[in-house]
Design a protein around this nucleic acid. Structure first.
Length: 921
RNA sequence: AGGCGCGUAGCUCAGUUGGUUAGAGCGCUACCUUGACAUGGUAGAGGUCACCAGUUCGAAUCUGGUCGUGCCUACCA
């Protein structure tokens, strides 16, 4: 074995072998266990969020697979309508053309080409994470079979009246030329203005002052509204104003939507370009005047001077023209929420179009109930509030998009625009008896990407035709995802799955936190703080990292700043830490209900942990190869250390099982780290040395210890495997034969179970004693500056018979681990030499001074120790002197405090006596 | 405006139903290249658990409030 762990040499090898041998497919006869992958964009790249979620899903899958479940991790990718189409459109733009020139069919072909070309990247990256996904069942949302499900769902919902076509205001993206849903609109506060304009009151010399944040929409004004009880304006209700620049006369209406406190209390009403105005327009039968084109420039409804102007150009022009007419009362700075498309970043327009909608209420009700009744549980539970809040106020879902990449809507129109919905044109003609002489054209639009994603759990498992996997694995066990897509995806899956299969899609929803950078900042291209999981696995040179982070940056000053920041954060670039170390970092940070700040320092620490395990294995192997190992499991031959480590392993097993049960991967990883490093390596390996090196005198003991050494390691590897798949496999393959274990892979071995009978309290208390004495001696060595190379003599005094027995049975350990010349028990009566003193319980540990240390240093050390004891004593005594505590606290608590008081008192007294003795010298 | 979190060592975080002298890792200090590992070992320093009040014999933990901070939802033109 190499002296250090070299992850890159083993990872590809094992992953390929696992995949080739079909280990990722469900096996055996155990109860099914299933997770579906949140499908990544087929042309996307792996990011830290994926890395985190995959680490968790893979741990769950491997854990349950080892527990004997038929584990299926269903894999697949998403066509990601807008995102993918935008990429290809950008490619066209770079080539000096666009999709309209290319034409629909050729464009869609190009997108498929791009999918083929780049689609393998993300799936290769998922493999690098060690994810045990069942690649033999890989799906894509636009596969034939999945598309058929999409079509069926659409047609069925339509036939039930739950999908309808409506002409109403939608969120329109004027750059992408498509409608988007409410969820795809991001509103953030921006600086703007509040313009106050004077609208002349008809047939008078008076005017009304209205306030608006969007002057250009005045071209579509249909009324001015005031509050019905606003005394300033009641006399004007029913009268008219002359809309400046437009030569139109519009009414003054009353509506209690108007807030008299805001602005002037007069609102211009533009039904075609504002959601609230649209509703008010319906209430008052106002004309809906659309003044914008698809590009959000001014259309022909407006006066000629403004036609063709971009909306923001028109705004400037209008303000200037009103200014010239003396109709601008004032302009105030004003903060307002500006709606922007989450993909394009441009300002979204409420825009009147024909779109397809899902009538959502009847789907939402059972979906709410499923969570209320606990059929579906969120982890952590508080996300259920978020879910309920949105679901109880849900709006109909706009599902049509004016894109070319996606599932085309299965609706056809005749020349009179009558709509026919069906599985195909042939189907539609047959159903509606439409003659071939009638020309039908299919709806141009495609469905929102999330429409097909909503069907993911059951469409990927073969519903409705091929039901073997569906029947076995659905409902799935747990969905692992981020809070940001609870509405986009989780809620819609619950609704659609209940509607069509009558089953919940999953029993649990584990919501992960967001992965942020080490300072808690969101990772983003513009901040230049993105970490690529693959770079943490393979490492990356500083220059390359800087190049990567600053590529395609528009602003040069941003580029410089990011380069500087990157050089500060990673002066040496990033080392190759390997997948296991990266995964373990995720687990260690995965406490529930909290975002995680990703600190590369942690990854380095866990890389070291991998190396520690590697070397522990080297030690175990070096000490076993070619040597006799006990064949029987004979506890009578076990040393106290053997029994202790077995007992601690048992407890660790219990902790890990419980932690995984509760989705507490942080606690699981902590328990494993603590056990393997601080107990197995730091203590057990050291305790095994005296026995293994004393083989000539006691071969049975050495053989038994060898057995335990290997057994504990082997079982630890199995405990650890779901978290560190590669390292554990590599070592296990070398180790298993030494123990006579036959098996092809650790991933097919059983997961350790907890057996309370294997907890050995006696062994634990004995080794605790041993550790306590050794630590007391080392402490004196350390603080008194006694060279580690120097052997010393130690006396023990006080204590009970048990302590003396422990000394006798642990002499060899003490001599080796504390580097002792000699250690013996002093009877209580005998005179102690001048010595430095430590305590373990009521055992005094005496290191004779002669020639080793100076008295004042020891006194200073004692004073410090006494100080600590007295602080504790003060706290305990305070409690016990409080009569209310003694009379009210439970008996057990009081007894415990009393005992503690005695121990502290005895210890303090003993050290004080030592201090006095030293003073006499 | 409502809702959900968070605030514990220099940094990143644990702390289960209120009861240990509040823990871990990283970082820091000192010593040590001892026959698994310097990606290591041994020892050590470091916290009035954001603040205030309350409940209780007892609060990092429960309640109320204040401050700071992050996010989500709905918005007034």
């Amino acid at each position: 074995m190499e002296k250090t762990f070299q992850p890159q040499q083993i990872e590809d090898h094992w992953y390929k072998l696992w995949e080739e041998r079909g280990y990722f497919s469900p096996q055996g006869e155990g109860a099914p266990y299933c997770i579906v992958i949140p499908p990544p964009n087929v042309t996307g790249r792996l990011h830290m969020g994926h890395g985190f979620q995959h680490a968790i899903m893979d741990a769950l899958i491997r854990f349950h697979r080892m527990q004997g479940r038929q584990a299926l991790w269903q894999v697949g990718t998403d066509h990601a309508g807008i995102a993918t189409q935008m990429v290809v459109e950008r490619q066209l733009a770079a080539a000096g053309t666009n999709r309209h020139e290319v034409g629909r069919e050729a464009f869609v072909d190009k997108v498929w080409d791009w999918k083929e070309e780049s689609g393998g990247i993300i799936t290769q990256q998922l493999r690098r994470m060690g994810s045990s996904l069942d690649w033999s069942r890989e799906r894509f949302t636009m596969d034939e079979q999945l598309s058929a499900v999409v079509e069926k769902v659409f047609v069925d919902l339509y036939n039930e009246g739950l999908i309808y076509r409506g002409n109403r205001l939608v969120n329109w993206d004027p750059q992408l030329h498509t409608a988007i849903s409410d969820l795809e609109v991001i509103s953030e506060e921006e600086d703007g203005h509040l313009w106050h304009f004077n609208y002349p009151i008809a047939d008078s010399d008076q005017h009304l002052t209205i306030a608006t944040t969007r002057p250009e929409t005045m071209l579509g004004d249909a009324a001015v509204a005031v509050h019905p009880e606003d005394e300033r304006y009641t006399h004007l209700i029913g009268k008219f104003v002359d809309l400046p620049l437009c030569n139109r006369r519009i009414p003054i209406i009353a509506d209690d939507y108007v807030d008299p406190e805001f602005g002037t209390g007069c609102v211009k009403i533009t039904p075609a370009h504002d959601f609230n105005d649209y509703e008010m327009g319906k209430r008052h039968n106002l004309e809906v005047i659309n003044i914008l084109t698809d590009n959000a420039s001014i259309n022909d409804e407006a006066p000629a001077t403004y036609r063709g102007l971009d909306r923001f150009e028109a705004r400037k022009q209008l303000v200037a023209d009103l200014e010239a007419l003396g109709l601008v009362e004032k302009i105030e700075p004003h903060k307002l929420k500006v709606p922007r498309g989450d993909r394009s970043g441009v300002v979204i327009e409420p825009y009147l179009t024909h779109q397809w909608y899902v009538a959502i209420q009847s789907l939402a009700d059972p979906a709410i109930k499923a969570v209320e009744d606990g059929d579906i549980e969120f982890v952590p539970k508080n996300w259920e509030n978020t879910y309920f809040a949105w679901m109880r106020n849900i709006q109909d879902w706009c599902i049509s998009r004016q894109l070319w990449w996606g599932h085309r809507i299965p609706a056809w129109y005749d020349e009179d625009n009558n709509v026919y919905v069906g599985h195909s044109e042939v189907d539609v003609r047959a159903k509606h008896e439409i003659d071939d002489s009638v020309v039908l054209r299919q709806d141009e639009d495609v469905l929102d990407t999330w429409f097909s994603s909503a069907l993911w759990t059951f469409s990927t498992l073969g519903w409705p035709d091929d039901t073997e996997y569906f029947n076995k694995f659905h409902p799935t066990d747990v969905l692992v995802t981020g809070f940001d897509i609870i509405f986009f995806w989780v809620a819609r899956m619950i609704m659609m799955t209940l509607k069509f299969t009558g089953e919940i899609p999953f029993k649990k929803v584990y919501i992960t936190g967001l992965v942020r950078d080490e300072h808690g900042q969101k990772m983003s291209k513009s901040k230049g703080n993105i970490l690529d999981p693959i770079d943490l696995i393979d490492g990356i040179e500083l220059d390359e990292l800087v190049e990567k982070r600053t590529a395609d940056m528009m602003q040069p000053q941003l580029k410089e700043k990011i380069a500087r920041l990157t050089r500060d954060s990673f002066p040496e670039g990033i080392a190759a830490y390997g997948t296991d170390a990266l995964r373990f970092t995720y687990y260690s940070l995965a406490s529930t209900g909290r975002d995680i700040k990703f600190d590369v320092g942690r990854t380095e620490g866990f890389r070291n942990f991998c190396n520690k395990i590697w070397n522990a294995a080297r030690y175990a192997m070096m000490n076993s190869e070619g040597k006799a190992i006990a064949t029987d499991w004979d506890p009578a031959q076990f040393s106290s250390a053997d029994r202790w480590i077995l007992s601690r392993l048992e407890q660790t097993t219990s902790e890990v099982l419980e932690a995984v049960d509760n989705y507490r991967f942080d606690l699981a990883s902590q328990a494993l780290h603590e056990f393997i490093w601080n107990e197995y390596c730091d203590w057990y390996l050291e305790l095994s040395k005296p026995i293994l090196w004393d083989e000539d005198n006691n071969p049975e003991a050495a053989q038994a210890t060898r057995k335990v050494l290997l057994t504990v390691l082997e079982r630890s590897l199995r405990l650890l495997h779901p978290f560190m798949p590669f390292l554990t496999e590599e070592i296990w393959q070398k180790l298993a034969p030494a123990l006579g274990i036959v098996g092809d892979s650790i991933m097919l071995q059983p997961y350790p179970e907890f057996d309370a009978d294997n907890v050995d309290a006696a062994a634990q208390s004995e080794i605790d004693w041993l550790k306590g004495i050794i630590v007391a001696i080392r402490n004196i060595r350390g603080e008194m500056d006694i060279s580690p190379a120097r052997s010393i003599s130690v006396f023990l005094r006080g204590g009970e018979e048990q302590d003396q027995n422990y000394l006798q049975s642990n002499l060899m350990y003490l001599q080796k681990l504390a580097k002792l010349e000699n250690i013996e028990w002093l009877s209580a009566e005998s005179e102690a030499p001048a010595a430095a003193t430590g305590l373990y319980g009521n055992v005094e540990v005496l290191v004779p001074l002669a020639g080793l240390i100076d008295v004042s240093a020891e006194q200073a050390r004692l004073e410090k120790e006494i100080g600590k004891l007295e602080a504790g004593l003060k706290a305990v005594s305070g409690k016990l002197n409080n009569e209310k505590f003694v009379s009210n606290a439970p008996e057990a608590v009081v007894t415990k405090e009393r005992q503690k008081q005695q121990e502290l008192q005895a210890a303090a007294d003993a050290l004080k006596a030592k201090f006095e003795e030293l003073s006499k010298l």
